[in-house]
Amino acid sequence: MFEGLGTQRLLALFFAGWLLFSFPLLGLWDRDATLLGVPLFPAALFILWALLIAMLAWWMEHPDQK
């Protein structure tokens, strides 16, 4: 059902994203700090999100490097 390295990578990425966006890992970013003037918590959420998309894009656009 979920054969192939590509599919397994996607599954792994899905669970990684799920973990990063939920309890308790998300709580780690909840600090009274700023990143270039942007409060850390929202900044971290957007950066994690962007990283997830970048990883997905890389695997989707380079399917041959298996």
Partner: peptide, 19 residues
Amino acid sequence: VWFLPIYLGPTLAMVLGWV
């Protein structure tokens, strides 16, 4: 940040989209 889960969910769904 409560506006965000509505877009994080679809992002995760799209990770599995190819499958």
